[in-house]
C-alpha cells in the first residue's frame, strides 16, 4: 500500500477541518472496509484521520422521542441495545445478519452506512470500473453479474449497496446528522445514498470532509411489527442477493401502515414507495403483498446472471409481509 500519514485530532470539528483541507485525506473508523481497500489498492489516501474517541458510541433517547445513535456505536452494540431490540427489532436483525461477530465488534454505525460495494470488479484494480476509476468503463455490466443491481442502475454502474443496516434504516425513516466544513446538517434516509447515474464514483450525497456524527430514529407507531429477512447464497457470512426490511400495521384485515425497503437490488437501499402506496388500505393478504411487490419490481432490468432477482424479491417480500400479518393477527 501507499505510505500514508496518520492523525488523531482532538475533536470532530478538528477532524472535519483536517480532512476538508486535504483532498487525499480520509476518515478511519472501524477500518473493516477501509483497511481491506488499502491492501487491495482500491483507495490510496495520503492521510488517515482516525476518529477513535471523537464520536459518540452509544444509543440514547431523544427528548422529543426517538433514538439517537452515536456514529461510533459498534454494530454489535447497536444490535444488542435493549431499546433497539424493543422498538426496532428489524434493525437489530439486519445488523446481526451482516458480516461476522468479529467484524460487527469493530464496524461503526457511520462506517456501515458508508461501506462500499462488493462488486468483484470494483475490488479488482486490474479491471475497469467507473466507481473506482471514473471513465474506465463498467466491467460488471457484461461480466459476472449475480450480484448486479436490477433497479435504478445505469450503463455506467450496476453495483449494489452491501449494507444490511442501511436497508433497515431506510425503512425506518432514519435521519443522519452530518458535520461538514460549513457546519451541521441533517440528511434523511432514503436520501443519503445515490443511484449511480453518470457519477457512480459518488456513493452518497456527502461531500469530501463531511462526517456522519449520529443517526436518529423516530419512534415506531403503536402496533407495528417489523422484520428483516436476508436471502443469500449461504446461511451466514454472505452479502444479500435480496433483503427485505418491512414494518407492518394491520387493522381489521387491512394494511394500516407499511414501511418497506429492499437490499441487494440497487446502488442504494431501495425504499419501496410504490409497493407501500399500493398496500396502504389494501387487504393484508398474500395476493395483495405479491401484487404490490410485483409493481415495485416492474421496472427491474436483468442480465443472464441475475434474472432470478426480481422473482426472488417478490417471493421474499410476499413471505415477509405474509408472516408479519400472521404475527399481527395473533
Amino acid at each position: 500500500m501507499r505510505p500514508f500519514a496518520y492523525s488523531r485530532p482532538r475533536d470532530a470539528a478538528a477532524a472535519v477541518a483536517e480532512v476538508s483541507a486535504d483532498p487525499e485525506a480520509c476518515y478511519l473508523a472501524g477500518g473493516t472496509n477501509l483497511v481491506d481497500h488499502l491492501r487491495l489498492g482500491i483507495t490510496r489516501p495520503g492521510l488517515l484521520v482516525d476518529l477513535r474517541d471523537l464520536l459518540d458510541d452509544g444509543v440514547e433517547e431523544m427528548p422529543g422521542g426517538g433514538l439517537r445513535i452515536g456514529a461510533a456505536t459498534p454494530n454489535s452494540d447497536l444490535a444488542a441495545h435493549p431499546l433497539v431490540r424493543r422498538r426496532h427489532p428489524m434493525l437489530s436483525a439486519a445488523l446481526l445478519s451482516g458480516a461476522s461477530g468479529q467484524l460487527r465488534n469493530a464496524a461503526s454505525t457511520g462506517g456501515n452506512l458508508l461501506q462500499r460495494t462488493r462488486c468483484a470488479y470494483f475490488r479488482d484494480t486490474a479491471a475497469p470500473c467507473n466507481k473506482r476509476e471514473p471513465g474506465t468503463g463498467c466491467s460488471a455490466l457484461e461480466g459476472h453479474g449475480r450480484h448486479n443491481a436490477v433497479l435504478g442502475a445505469s450503463r455506467h454502474c450496476v453495483a449494489v449497496h452491501p449494507s444490511d443496516m442501511a436497508v433497515a434504516l431506510t425503512a425506518l425513516d432514519a435521519r443522519v446528522r452530518v458535520l461538514g466544513p460549513g457546519g451541521e446538517r441533517v440528511v434523511p434516509l432514503p436520501g443519503l445514498h445515490r443511484l449511480p447515474g453518470d457519477e457512480p464514483h459518488r456513493d452518497t450525497v456527502l461531500e469530501h470532509g463531511d462526517l456522519i456524527t449520529a443517526v436518529e430514529l423516530p419512534d415506531p407507531p403503536r402496533g407495528r411489527r417489523s422484520a428483516y429477512r436476508k436471502v443469500r447464497d449461504r446461511a451466514s457470512y454472505a452479502f444479500a442477493l435480496v433483503s427485505v426490511a418491512a414494518a407492518l400495521e394491520v387493522a381489521d384485515g387491512r394494511v394500516r401502515g407499511v414501511r418497506l425497503a429492499l437490499g441487494g437490488l440497487a446502488h442504494a437501499p431501495w425504499r419501496a414507495r410504490r409497493a407501500e402506496e399500493a398496500l396502504t388500505g389494501a387487504p393484508a393478504t398474500a395476493d395483495a403483498f405479491r401484487e404490490a411487490a410485483r409493481a415495485e419490481l416492474a421496472d427491474a432490468r436483468t442480465g443472464p446472471d441475475n434474472a432470478f432477482k426480481p422473482a426472488l424479491a417478490v417471493a421474499t417480500v410476499t413471505a415477509v409481509l405474509r408472516d408479519l400479518a400472521a404475527r399481527g393477527d395473533r
Binding site: 468483484a120 479488482d124 461480466g143 459476472h144 447464497d233 449461504r234 446461511a235 451466514s236 452479502f239
Partner: peptide
C-alpha cells in the same frame, strides 16, 4: 480469463451455519 470471485467473501465454502 481471470477468476472473478477470487476471495473467501465470494468463493463460498460452508460456514458453521451451513
Amino acid at each position: 480469463g481471470h477468476v472473478v470471485n477470487a476471495d473467501l467473501a465470494e468463493y463460498h465454502v460452508p460456514v458453521h451455519a451451513d
